[in-house]
């Protein structure tokens, strides 16, 4: 790809143990100046929008009052964290967030892989392509629309799904979106509907790059469809799956805020409250800036632990990790 830009090979003795030999920094800077220059906007973006704002995290350790500012507000140490861990909400938030994360891993993560593999087996390319386009359309709808559709489908007196359940299984008409037991299934179904098609794109790309010669060779050796799938297709996309798994794990705790906020009500709040919706409710609508920052910071740290954990696990299982 970038071979045109690649600099002439460095004249130094390569040491297989330590990778490429060291080059004095000035030489390196000078030699690769254009490449480094191209790096600057990206770095600046991360510094300005991701790292500098972290200064604001200090308010998690203060009783922050905006009028008094960062310097004027009183420092309170770990008070807000103590309040969070000993408060009545923590257990519920943690278990709700983790259960949703677990359900996501079990149902949502494999879905695009399965669909991609199924699409890959389709031989009529027009059909394959049109199905692919159709199933990723929902990705472009906002959660607000998805939530409204859900409310309509489950509406007590005229919802299509509610009617269907009522007709087929009988029983009294119920307001499914209000029930705690239905909250998680509905959330997972919404996510599946919205994100599966979009997720297949990356796997289909990985599948497309598999060398057809491999299949041909396997067929010559008498491998059937199933064997080809098991020994060629799956190993070919395994690295992609691992990388996606590690990337996903960092976002696991970011249970989609908008989606959950839109589906919450008094009856299902006990299972619906997750860290993100709680931070919004406490911080933005109630103005408890310090406390909600503490909650958010805790969630962020837990996310970092998850990323490193799954990376470690991937390496442990003999896969190449991300870092």
């Amino acid at each position: 790809m970038a071979t045109d830009l690649a600099p002439p090979p460095v004249k130094a003795v390569p040491d297989p143990e330590r990778g490429p030999a060291r080059v004095p920094i000035r030489t390196a800077l000078l030699r690769y100046r254009w490449l480094y220059l191209m790096l600057v906007p990206g770095l600046a973006y991360f510094v300005v929008f991701k790292y500098l704002p972290m200064y604001g995290l200090t308010i998690a350790f203060q009783d922050f009052v905006p009028f008094l500012g960062y310097s004027g507000s009183e420092w309170v140490g770990f008070k807000h964290f103590e309040e969070l861990f000993t408060g009545p909400d923590f257990g519920r938030l943690l278990s709700n967030t983790l259960i949703l994360a677990l359900l996501t891993v079990i149902f949502v993560f494999p879905a695009p892989i399965i669909v991609a593999l199924m699409l890959n087996e389709l031989r009529v390319s027009v059909l394959k392509r049109s199905i692919q386009s159709l199933i990723y359309i929902p990705h472009f709808l906002s959660w607000t629309i998805v939530a409204s559709l859900t409310y309509l489908l489950f509406a007590v007196d005229f919802g299509v799904i509610a009617n269907f359940i009522h007709e087929v299984f009988g029983g009294p008409r119920t307001d499914y979106v209000a029930q705690a037991d239905w909250f998680r299934p509905i959330i997972i179904m919404q996510t599946l509907w919205k994100s599966t098609g979009w997720g297949t794109i990356i796997y289909l790309a990985a599948l497309a790059s598999v060398d057809p010669n491999l299949y041909e060779a396997a067929r010559m050796d008498g491998a059937g469809r199933r064997r080809q799938f098991w020994h060629i297709t799956l190993p070919a996309i395994r690295p992609t799956i691992v990388v996606m798994a590690i990337l996903t794990s960092g976002n696991l705790l970011d249970a989609s805020f908008e989606q959950i906020w839109l589906m919450t009500n008094s009856l299902n709040r006990s299972v619906a409250d997750v860290f993100d919706s709680y931070v919004y409710y406490i911080g933005i609508t109630q103005g408890a800036f310090s406390y909600s920052t503490a909650v958010g910071l805790f969630k962020g740290l837990a996310g970092v632990v998850l990323i490193f954990g799954s990376n470690w696990l991937a390496k442990r299982l003999g896969q190449r990790g991300l870092f």
Binding site: V23, A28, V40, L43, V47
Partner: peptide, 18 residues
């Protein structure tokens, strides 16, 4: 260490600009 030092330099520059 080389890229890391470089990174530090870039960060300093960007911060100064900002």
């Amino acid at each position: 260490t080389t890229p890391r030092r470089l990174l530090a330099g870039t960060v300093a520059l960007a911060t100064a600009l900002l």
